[in-house]
Design a protein around this nucleic acid. Sequence first.
DNA 1: AGAGTCTTCCAAAGCGCTTTGGCTACTCTG
DNA 2: CAGAGTAGCCAAAGCGCTTTGGAAGACTCT
Lengths: 340, 340
Amino acid sequence: MNLKQLSHMLSLSQTTVSRALNGYPEVSEETRRRVIDAAKRHGYRPNPSARRLATGKSGMIGYVLPTGNAVDIDPHFVEFLSGLGDYARSHELDLVLSPADADDQETTYRRIVANRQVDAVYISSPRPADRRLALVNTLGIPFIVHGRSEGFEFDYPYLDIDNEGAFHEAARLLVQLGHKRLALINGDDRETFAIHRERGVRRALAASGLTLGERHICSTTMTEENGYRAARRLLEESGAPTAIVCSSLIMALGVVRAVRDLGLTIPGDLSLVAHDDVFPWLRPENFPVPLSTTRSSIRLAGARVAERLAARISGLEEGARGEVWPVDLVVRGSVAGAPV
Amino acid sequence: MNLKQLSHMLSLSQTTVSRALNGYPEVSEETRRRVIDAAKRHGYRPNPSARRLATGKSGMIGYVLPTGNAVDIDPHFVEFLSGLGDYARSHELDLVLSPADADDQETTYRRIVANRQVDAVYISSPRPADRRLALVNTLGIPFIVHGRSEGFEFDYPYLDIDNEGAFHEAARLLVQLGHKRLALINGDDRETFAIHRERGVRRALAASGLTLGERHICSTTMTEENGYRAARRLLEESGAPTAIVCSSLIMALGVVRAVRDLGLTIPGDLSLVAHDDVFPWLRPENFPVPLSTTRSSIRLAGARVAERLAARISGLEEGARGEVWPVDLVVRGSVAGAPV
DNA sequence: AGAGTCTTCCAAAGCGCTTTGGCTACTCTG
DNA sequence: CAGAGTAGCCAAAGCGCTTTGGAAGACTCT
């Protein structure tokens, strides 16, 4: 059942039927009703390929997926996706993942824009002066950044959490508890979120005349093993930290293991706070010692990004509004006063 | 730059240019060379929307993503995706995720097939007599199942690992080590993989005249918490198992925690084997006691599924070939002889 | 030389929609 | 009541590709 057939059945032109269905004003209410009714009865659904060719709109949102042998997709991605999908489902939006060589995403961005494969894209894990951002900005496709970049002349729309504030709060708590030697086990410090978190910790320390020692900061990809290694190194040195702030629950698993291996205890010998993106399959309250966290649901962020993307596509949202979500500090058993 | 312009520059018809580019035989080699050369020089790329409208082919593969408030996407998904993306990238295949109400995926399947949005789909986490399978089979879109279903009259193409064999091997090893009371902490037993794993364990036990006690089998979604709960329950009862086989590394985290909480040790009091899908961020050799595993890279499976999907789209693969990958049993420190 | 067969190309008809540019008929002004 | 304005509809021209059904010329074969 296509437009031609439907319009023929109704003894109307394709123009009128099309307009009736798409809500244009130059069609009488009575005709519109007739059309909509017939369309429903016959299960007419406009062919998206045809519509896309005619309008250039695809009804899909895009994400360029960095891939490669040595490239691992972040496990956070799936949670973000849950949220995105949640929203997208109720709006019949599809998501197209365009895999790209991690070292050359530009080609892919250009392709999907030139081909009008998607109506909007989102960008995640941005870095300062991220080239993808400059690119999509000049390409002129609607987009939203999940996270933030830095060092651009122009503004851009984004959704981020207050990483600096969160880690500031966490570090401040630890300082208030008397800790003098803090360490930060961070994610990849080429990404903005990690930079912000470090900034937050430094600011909290500075407020009490403390500093983050050169060797008291690690940044690597967030695996259990890297968490373990970092913690081992930190805790075995002289002047070991009495408190650690850690950028992910997965790394925190490794920290906990290291502490155990060294015969130390939490929070007796070490206080630990980690950031929790809220995974359904690993919860901080279920750590051997319930873990204090800075918490922000990455899933909700996914839903919000989808919502704003949809708004931008339909012209409801304009300009470069940035949105920063506050982060909860949830105190559990893994923090205590500094050992004497 | 579109076909019209390009053909005009070359003083050729659109027909000939199109054919030259698409490798049709009725064009002379010299002309073809000229055309291809000019296309490259002017950066001509056929418009996919137009091509799609004309041919009905989209150059994309599809996946229906079950979503909903209470629905969590499996963390394995992201690893599978890594592999899929790896292959898809080198073949300019995009993946479109169509979010669907988890309880009504049929509508979405029908939509993407009717709209010809994708050239093929894959289905994951199948159950016995899975309705999605019957559906895509009748809808006539090329597909591959990652995993297996059961109880159909028809054959279908799939890629699966030898879950039964793997868990048979694991259980057999434990039996050989003298364990009489085994338990299985499984995934959701409505899914085929879980059924196969249980079958494997039972078969190994039966071979030595043993059985899997009614209360020695748990099946739930594979979270750390559920692993913990299951292990607690098992180990606190009288006649507690001396060995556990566990369907996921994430659940195994919970098992290890339970063992610790109860003041027991691995492998002294309990031997543990888990299935490892090979996550980059959590490795069995890094467990407090290195974990014995049945190992199979879900990422490689993703790449293979993409490869076969591409082959089916282009008609290189036909029929309902099933492919079952063997699984490695990797023995590490978490297993030992049964306690006396 | 005429008939048949390839080879190589082309014009035009789709694919199924949206949108432009009218064209009627009817209502409203002054 | 002439002229302007408006509501409601339509024919046809895109969108940019693929594919059908020839056609022209070169070549082979009798």
